[in-house]
Design a protein around this nucleic acid. Structure first.
Lengths: 208, 208
DNA sequence: ACTCTATACTTACGCCGTAAGAATCTTCAA
DNA sequence: TTGAAGATTCTTACGGCGTAAGTATAGAGT
């Protein structure tokens, strides 16, 4: 049951493969993302994919890069210190939340790709313009990025409260109370609250 | 090539299985942690493990729980607000860093187990004694936990700078400068710096 | 001593990543 | 116009995976 005769091109590119992989992971989860399954999705045999990607690990790396690449680095030229980092953190969070299935991947790959290095360099550039030493700026960048990742990892979709909804108030009275009262605020408010806490604490130390 | 006759007991327990799994993951990484391999480690066939653990996913969940369980919840009775959360965050970080191979697992499993719920309840208890509303306390807990996880995920072992060591200064001048200057401080200093920033920013908002 | 059950092993199925190689199409120089 | 070269695809095969189903035995409770 062959799809077509060998050699007959189907116009695959690395980019197309990565996009299909992201779509598949979004739709059916990371476990469904196998080379055979992805091949089927593109109407191609699994081994064909290896002409565009050297291994499955490399494919996953590429997937993370595809996801993170379009995020704009923090721009300090316009607006205050906090605003720039706040906007950057929010965009990063939004991007990750749009692909919840891929978050574990982002969290488990260092992703020191050329793409990422350029983003970091650009960020340091504009942070220097704002008066920061590069060493301090790097600390701040790491702190904010790690914070966003950690927040997204601990509350991927919807309120973390969702998972705690059916909670026995007799066994966990305070937890139940906290959950019932915290609901209206939502995860986003919780994120902004903690982010601003971090940023306001970061500023005096970093600028001194 | 059978190891022993069926029925002959080897004295396996869920706990022993989980400990062996953790040891194996620590020693050889997550990819080496297969049911067959783990069975071999315990001198047992793979299927035997299913008497102590319902599935591999459950085994991984148990592994995370085993790792996180011994961490003491933040105790506010003695010492200041910051000290308590600082100590908790540091212990969590130390525990995770002691098992770098397992970090991706912790980051990708919600882990809303009975164990964890009890830890959270205990934390809320002592935070209430310090004058916090449970809802605010929960926010603070999530913020700190997420922060630690994010930090550990982005710089698992050694300085993140290690991976950036061989960097082309011509291509990334600021990055190279930041790396060369930031080195002596180390990852721990970076962690404490950002943690204190978060905590100092958290306090006024949460206590108001 | 006898039964019952928990524990262990065996076999088998359908997945997985990927190494090796054959078949075909496209391109381009002669 | 032809024919060689290289790119792209398919085929086959190997060892390893999680686990469903079934079998055998050792030890505990009567």
């Amino acid at each position: 049951m062959s799809r077509r005769t060998p050699g007959q091109r189907v116009g695959l590119t690395r980019e197309a493969v990565l996009r299909a992989a992201l779509a598949l992971a979004d739709r059916e989860g990371l476990k469904a993302l196998s080379m055979r399954r992805l091949g089927a999705e593109l109407d191609v045999e699994a081994m064909t994919l290896y002409h565009h990607v050297p291994s499955k690990d490399a494919l996953l790396d590429g997937l993370v890069e595809l996801l993170v690449a379009p995020i704009a680095p923090p721009a300090f030229e316009a607006g205050s210190w906090q605003e720039a980092l706040h906007a950057y953190a929010s965009e990063l969070r939004t991007t990750l939340l749009a692909h919840p299935n891929v978050i574990p991947l982002v969290a488990s790959r260092p992703a020191v790709t050329a793409q990422n290095l350029q983003v970091m360099e650009a960020a340091l550039e504009s942070m220097r313009a704002a008066g920061l030493q590069p060493a301090d700026a790097l600390d701040v960048l790491y702190a904010v990025t790690g914070f966003v990742l950690g927040h997204v990892v601990t509350s991927p979709d919807g309120d973390p409260v969702d998972q705690l909804d059916a909670l026995d108030p007799a066994e966990y009275p305070l937890l139940a109370e906290a959950v019932s009262k915290a609901s209206p605020r939502g995860t986003e408010a919780r994120f902004e609250f903690a982010l601003d806490a971090l940023l306001s604490g970061l500023e005096p130390n970093a600028l001194d």
